[in-house]
């Protein structure tokens, strides 16, 4: 039999995850409505429109974090339900390939989520997108998403197949993800010009987000194998 490369494994896992999503529509039917609901609830809690416009970038990323927890739980519940991860291990499938595949699928789902949340902020909170900030907005979202997905996949893998994971996952993921919340919020504030912030103020934060994504991408690549193997 031909040798299956790490890249092939990653691709297979990635395609499989997206196929599961397209057929089950959990993201579209449950998680996206949940995140839109979170945005509405923020509006109830904070009341005034001018406050909402001011804090919109932070609320978008908070909603991303909360929804990501749900997506990760779902993504690994699929794996542990039929002992799929264990089956992959006994078949000698490369753990790193599985990590990259799960990571890529999570990135795609988070990007869909972020597009929806930015649209919600524009519609409900009266946020204005400015043309000159688009590059910063897009690059920030990509690097923040890569970092978040790396963290989410590591801890999702840890919690897969262990009882009590539903409650443990947020406790593990949220403190680690807090630099992304801080960095991405400031960078998006700069991109949107919230409170008169200049675009140039956003770039240092992009640096932080990129370092975070690389650190946890590399860290996760090393950690994932030992975490899931028995």
């Amino acid at each position: 039999m031909a040798e299956v490369s790490r890249f092939d494994v990653a691709k297979a896992v990635f395609v499989k995850d997206l196929r599961v999503e397209i057929r089950s529509r959990v993201l579209v039917n449950q998680i996206l409505p949940f995140s839109a609901l979170v945005m509405v609830l923020f509006a109830f809690a904070l009341d005034a429109t001018n406050v909402l416009t001011r804090v919109a970038p932070g609320l978008i990323w908070l909603a991303v974090l909360f929804s990501m927890i749900v997506i990760v739980q779902r993504g690994f519940a699929v794996e542990s339900a039929d002992g799929a991860l264990e089956a992959l291990q006994s078949a000698g499938v490369d753990a790193l390939g599985v990590y990259w595949g799960k990571w890529a699928a999570l990135v795609v789902q988070l990007v869909v989520l972020e597009v929806l949340l930015v649209a919600t902020a524009v519609l409900l909170y009266g946020v204005d997108l400015r043309a000159e900030g688009v590059v910063l907005l897009v690059t920030t979202s990509i690097s923040a998403t890569c970092g978040l997905a790396a963290v989410g996949t590591i801890y999702g893998g840890l919690a897969a197949g262990v009882s009590g994971r539903e409650t443990l996952l947020p406790l593990l993921v949220l403190p680690v993800a807090s630099p992304v919340l801080i960095g991405a919020t400031r960078a998006v504030e700069a991109a949107l010009g919230t409170g008169g912030t200049a675009i140039s103020e956003g770039w240092p934060w992009l640096g932080l987000l990129s370092v975070f994504a690389v650190a946890f991408g590399v860290g996760g690549s090393f950690a994932f194998g030992p975490l899931i193997e028995d």
Binding site: I154, P175, V176, P179, I182, P204, L208, A223
Partner: peptide, 17 residues
Amino acid sequence: LLVVLEIPLVHWSVRLW
């Protein structure tokens, strides 16, 4: 070990903030 990776990033981001 992952927490050790987290410490400098958290500290850096909070300081910058």
